[in-house]
Design a binder for these strands. Structure first.
Length: 494
RNA sequence: GGCGACAUAGCCAAGUGGUAAGGCCGAGGUCUGCAAAAUCUCUAUCCCCAGUCCGAUUCUGGGUGUCGCCUCCA
């Protein structure tokens, strides 16, 4: 049974989908005015894992993620560079996809944009005005009136009065209440503008997510999420607008899921303070899967401090798991090439080792699910992979040493272990891009050349010419090829 | 000022009312020509004080510290 921490109730709740067997998710996407930093990656990697997990549990998932492509910061960037707002948003949307692809984040089912859903946004604002929840100023600005909304503040747990007291906001005295927020902003010269009931202008921040989530997922949907800085005011305002417009306090998202921040030296990473690392820079040194693994080693709601040392650590840990994954694939390849297995014969071999291993794998497999079911605890889930990894490697070592051979029933057990391990890996989304990369790297020519070099080195070793053998190994290492001497022959990897 | 979160080994990080997963680093052993990889062994009275309980790291209250939101922000 899946339990999810719901920001709305501030506790874990048992997840019950609105429609049996289906899950609908709206995750707040980015405002494309800048290249994404590592902090931006966290919600999307988190949701990617959640989607994968639901998919694996047999749910039909509908996942929507917007681009807020009409925004002050985009306009500012466009003016600075002397290009159009569309040039800016398109450039950074492209950046976004490039980076997410490297992080192995599966694409959303739909990426609605503000600029392409203007009619729905305007219609929603009109409903709010008509119902008396919003008011128009003489200049054409339209504001949402928090005083008309008794339940305003229920997500973030604040009261309108409390916020007034210490608000650092520059109060716009044209507003009826300091907490009122813009639904529509009248156009200023040189800004992109759309026709509306209130004259030319553009939407305020917040309304786009309400309009687009309701449009594409319906009046009620299961999940809505994003970074925890969106709880207030963004998501609070979305709830207010949506429920006021529809007139149902139970409509809109049922579960609110927010990820913790990524910090640098324990301070929040933020574009506005210049305190950030871009994902593109990190990817120059580490693969997307390692960065992803780094993120998932901590529970999504905890803060996560970023540093190169931490990622390096994640790299080492990742390699460990990857090594077991490779070992398992190696064993399976051996099994598949073995006639004994195909015929299902040779049950003579002791099944104790493989039997113990498969038993452990099944136990950890269900522990893995338990961890994921407990508010998507990837950190715990991953620890179970390490536990399996240890025994897999021991088994592999024994095989390499010629002590055992996975034949007969054992063969099927090992294949099952491999299946389990692979499934865990794909649930958290690792060891997927790798293969494509390896295939590309290991072209036939490269493979032949390396085998030639290795065979020369083997001759040197046979002649006990260690100096020569070590020199070859060191130089291959410098090129990025690692050599391992095992009783079963030489293994190499790039 | 209002609201909230967190405090677990050298570092990172799960978790539980009955003395605590996993990873990194470190020490020692096995394997190896030497390595590498792997494996084995070793490393924590869970911020402080009080309370509840047979028993608390886990619950309650207080304290201290760190961080976040209240302004654009994933």
């Amino acid at each position: 049974m899946l339990q999810v921490y719901n920001t709305m109730t501030r506790q874990k709740e048992i997840f019950k989908p609105l429609v049996k067997g289906e899950v609908s998710i709206y995750c707040c996407g980015v405002t494309p005015y800048n290249t994404p930093h590592i902090g931006n990656a966290r919600p999307f990697v988190t949701w990617d894992v959640i989607r994968r997990y639901f998919n694996r549990q047999g749910y039909k998932v509908r996942y929507i993620q917007n681009f807020t492509d009409v925004d002050d910061k985009i306009i500012a960037a466009a003016n600075r560079e002397g290009v159009t707002w569309k040039d800016i948003s398109e450039r950074y949307i492209k950046d976004y996809f490039k980076v997410m692809n490297a992080l192995n984040v599966q694409p959303a089912d739909l990426y609605p944009k503000v600029s392409e859903n203007m009619d729905d946004i305007i219609a929603m604002i009109k409903t709010l005005v008509d119902k008396g929840f919003a008011y128009k100023l003489d200049n054409g600005d339209v504001f949402y009136s928090v005083e008309k909304d008794e339940s305003y503040g229920k997500l973030s747990g604040r009261k309108v009065e409390d916020m007034q007291a210490g608000a650092r906001v520059e109060v716009d005295d044209r507003k009826r209440h300091p907490m009122d927020f813009a639904l529509w902003k009248s156009a200023k010269p040189g800004e992109p503008a759309w026709e509306s009931y209130w004259g030319k202008g553009r939407p305020g921040w917040h309304i786009e997510c309400s309009a687009m989530s309701l449009k594409y997922l319906g009046e009620k949907f299961d999940f809505h999420g994003g970074g925890s800085d969106l709880i207030f005011p963004h998501h609070e305002n979305e709830i207010a607008q949506s429920q006021a417009a529809i007139g149902d306090e139970h409509c809109f998202a049922q579960y609110w899921v927010h990820n913790g921040f990524i910090t640098i030296n324990n301070e929040k990473m933020s574009k506005s303070t210049g305190n950030f690392f871009t994902i593109a820079d990190i990817l120059k040194k580490y693969s997307g899967e390692v960065v992803r693994f780094f993120l998932l080693q901590t529970h999504y709601r905890s803060p996560l401090d970023f540093s190169e040392e931490r990622v390096q650590e994640a790299q080492v840990a990742y390699n460990r798991l990857k090594n077991s994954y490779d070992n398992l694939n190696f064993l399976v390849a051996k099994i598949e090439a073995d006639e004994f297995v195909k015929g299902g014969k040779n049950p003579m071999v002791s099944m104790s080792q493989a039997g113990g291993l498969v038993e452990l794998a099944e136990r950890l497999y269900s522990a893995f699910d338990d961890a994921m079911n407990d508010d998507f605890n990837t950190a715990l889930a991953i620890s179970h992979m390490f536990e399996l990894s240890r025994d897999v490697n021991s088994y592999y070592n024994d095989f390499i040493a010629g002590k055992i051979s996975p034949r007969g029933t054992d063969a099927y057990m090992i294949m099952r272990v491999s299946e389990v391990f692979t499934d865990m890996a794909s649930t958290i989304g690792i060891f997927e891009n790798i293969e494509a990369e390896e295939v590309a790297a290991n072209s036939e020519l490269v493979e032949k050349l390396i085998n030639l070099v290795i065979s020369i080195r083997q001759d040197a070793r046979a002649a006990k010419n260690w100096t020569e053998a070590d020199k070859i190994r060191d130089e291959l290492k410098d090129i990025g090829i690692t050599i391992e001497d095992t009783p079963q022959g030489v293994k190499w990897k790039i």
